[in-house]
């Protein structure tokens, strides 16, 4: 009898408590505000895994409303073909056109590969340095953003970017660029290009975390960044990057 009442009492306590606890848990998970200071984002790109399908380019344009014309890219994929005589051909791949078979018949190809490109989210961003009105800036979590309400459209940042990662958005007449899908990553989602990459050629994460796919990538590979001599300190690093890539 005692035991029974004890169980009953326990149940009576536990049930509403449990339900309440569940509710509490759910609400705290949803309401937890994003803390930028706890993150510092970077990306790793495994050249050897990229198959040049261009799904990342499409997903980026879809997710971020990038104009569809082939002059505006937040991310793009280059195809390098290096021939035996040292001649290097580079193309910006257009996944809608099946290409590459012409090169298959070429005996002269020494090596060939794809290189995805995007804003390097530099630690020393030259674009931020030159913006006359401070419309572009580096956030606490290390992403370079543009304020489309303040940008005056002088395009100095576009000139200053060594990687060609910026363009003038024809709709807003302001500078535009990759944001690492800031609206996604702050909700715990992956950037759209990383989400859809079928071969995990792109790895996104927190550069400071001790255990994450990005940390593993950085531990297991010899890394390189683009144009290191310019001291922009990119946060996008490449494994097996070929010396011909600029």
């Amino acid at each position: 009898m005692e035991r029974r009442t004890f169980v009953q009492k326990l149940l009576a306590l536990a049930l509403p408590g449990g339900v309440f606890g569940l509710f509490l848990k759910k609400s705290t998970v949803q309401a937890a505000p994003y803390e930028a200071a706890k993150h510092y984002y970077g990306m790793g790109i495994q050249i050897d895994k990229c198959i040049g399908c261009g799904r990342c380019v499409e997903a980026c344009k879809e997710e971020n409303d990038v104009p569809r014309e082939p002059f505006y890219f937040r991310t793009w994929v280059e195809r390098y073909t290096i021939k035996k005589d040292g001649e290097v051909t580079v193309q910006n791949i257009d996944p809608r056109i099946e290409s590459g078979l012409e090169a298959a018949s070429e005996r002269q190809v020494l090596r060939s590969f794809f290189v995805p490109k995007l804003c390097n989210q530099c630690d020393h961003p030259p674009c931020v340095q030159v913006c006359p009105v401070g419309a572009t800036f580096k956030t606490t979590d290390g992403v370079v953003l543009v304020d489309e309400k303040r940008c005056i459209g002088c395009r100095y940042c576009i000139q200053a970017c060594p990687y060609g990662a910026r363009y003038l958005n024809p709709k807003t007449e302001t500078a535009d660029k990759c944001t690492f899908c800031y609206h996604r990553i702050t909700k715990g989602l992956l950037p759209a290009c990383v989400e859809v990459c079928p071969t995990q050629a792109r790895i996104f994460g927190d550069v400071r975390s001790s255990a994450s796919p990005l940390t593993r990538f950085k531990r297991m590979n010899k890394l390189h960044v683009l144009k290191p001599s310019l001291n922009t300190e990119p946060k996008v690093s490449y494994s097996n990057l070929d010396g011909e890539v600029r």
């Binding site: 931020v128 340095q129 030159v130 913006c131 006359p132 009105v133 401070g134 419309a135 303040r150 940008c151 005056i152 459209g153 002088c154 395009r155 100095y156 003038l168 807003t172 007449e173 302001t174």
Partner: peptide, 17 residues
């Protein structure tokens, strides 16, 4: 692109630019 915002250069100059 936005001449109407050019006053920003005087109001909020970025001193590294």
């Amino acid at each position: 692109g936005h001449p109407e915002r050019s006053f920003e250069i005087f109001l909020n100059p970025n001193f590294t630019s």
